[in-house]
Amino acid sequence: MNRRNFMLRASAALAASSLHSAEDLKLTDCHVYLGENPFRQLGAENTASFVQSLAARGVTEAWAGAFEGLLRRDVAVVNRDLAQACQGTMLRPCGTINLSLPDWQDDVQRCAEDHGMRVLRLHPNYHGYDLQAPAFRELLPLALKHRLLIQLVVQMEDERTQHPRVRVSPVDLTPLSTMLQEMKDMRIMLLNANAAMLLRHLQNCTNVWLDFAMIEGVGGVENLLKTWPQERLVFGSFAPVFYWESARLKMQESALSPAQAAAVHWQSAAGLLA
């Protein structure tokens, strides 16, 4: 091998090594919240300090919804403020859509066209509708038209710990399987679903993604991946409601291959918005 070929090969190997290292450092947290939680102070009221805390933990991109979207009626203002707060940061804003309000279709259009959002976050149980509502069936093709991913939050917290005047049950996922089998191009990410919900309703749906924020048990992520495809599982911390470190520990305590870890850390999320 002459000197020129040696240098070219060495440079290529170094470049490949650097690229691999950069990919290994990627971490997309698909489930965080900004703003003021209506029930207690959690630490996401100041965007700059919250982003700094995520970056210190190795997060390179985070998908953020707005706590204010749970109970406020003027979601147009909520989404505008969220988009402004996320601008210039690692945060990807996830617009709130309340299907029980009039003209929600305009909010979808504003999210997509005015704010450049790629993700919508729904809270059906807080907004007073179920998945059999005509508006939900109308939303699916509209989101597909605008190339929007839907995140469906199944539950925000256990019913036993909720404020006694604002108690909501988890979203009933039963109707979702039939809808998604009819709309093969539609993609939905479930947030805060547990393993029993998935096995009962959505095991055979190939267009459903989920985070692991409420997947419990020792080796929970490892056990889930025995029956759930790695390319449809994403990293979701549910910060600041949950301590962020609990998500890291769920990954560390599970025996995952490098391919599985990379898929959960960032590849699955990147493929969704490609």
Rank of each mutant, 00 (worst) to 15 (best):
residue 112 A to R: 02
residue 95 G to K: 05
residue 185 D to W: 04
residue 165 R to G: 01
residue 170 P to L: 10
residue 150 I to L: 11
residue 84 Q to E: 13
residue 75 V to I: 13
residue 244 W to R: 04
residue 200 R to H: 13
residue 189 M to L: 15
residue 120 L to G: 07
residue 56 A to P: 11
residue 11 S to T: 06
residue 131 L to G: 02
residue 136 F to A: 07
residue 273 L to T: 07
residue 28 T to W: 12
residue 236 G to N: 02
residue 180 L to F: 09
residue 224 L to I: 14
residue 98 N to W: 04
residue 193 A to Q: 13
residue 52 Q to D: 15
residue 179 M to I: 15
residue 188 I to K: 03
residue 128 G to K: 04
residue 67 F to A: 09
residue 270 A to D: 03
residue 129 Y to C: 01
residue 110 R to D: 06
residue 171 V to G: 03
residue 74 D to G: 01
residue 176 L to N: 14
residue 142 L to T: 06
residue 84 Q to I: 13
residue 156 M to S: 08
residue 136 F to K: 06
residue 270 A to W: 00
residue 28 T to D: 02
residue 89 T to K: 11
residue 272 L to C: 00
residue 181 Q to A: 12
residue 15 A to F: 05
residue 104 W to T: 07
residue 1 M to S: 11
residue 158 D to V: 14
residue 113 E to G: 00
residue 197 M to N: 10
residue 132 Q to T: 14
residue 259 A to F: 01
residue 238 F to H: 14
residue 176 L to K: 12
residue 65 G to L: 03
residue 85 A to I: 09
residue 144 L to V: 00
residue 114 D to E: 10
residue 6 F to Q: 05
residue 174 T to E: 10
residue 86 C to G: 07
residue 165 R to N: 06
residue 138 E to I: 07
residue 27 L to E: 06
residue 46 N to W: 13
residue 195 A to T: 15
residue 68 E to I: 03
residue 187 R to Y: 01
residue 90 M to Q: 15
residue 223 N to S: 13
residue 93 P to L: 08
residue 124 P to Y: 15
residue 199 L to F: 07
residue 253 E to L: 12
residue 194 N to S: 03
residue 205 C to F: 08
residue 128 G to Y: 06
residue 265 H to M: 02
residue 233 L to M: 04
residue 58 G to Q: 11
residue 19 L to I: 06
residue 128 G to S: 03
residue 2 N to K: 09
residue 18 S to N: 08
residue 63 W to L: 02
residue 1 M to E: 02
residue 67 F to I: 08
residue 167 R to G: 00
residue 237 S to W: 08
residue 86 C to M: 13
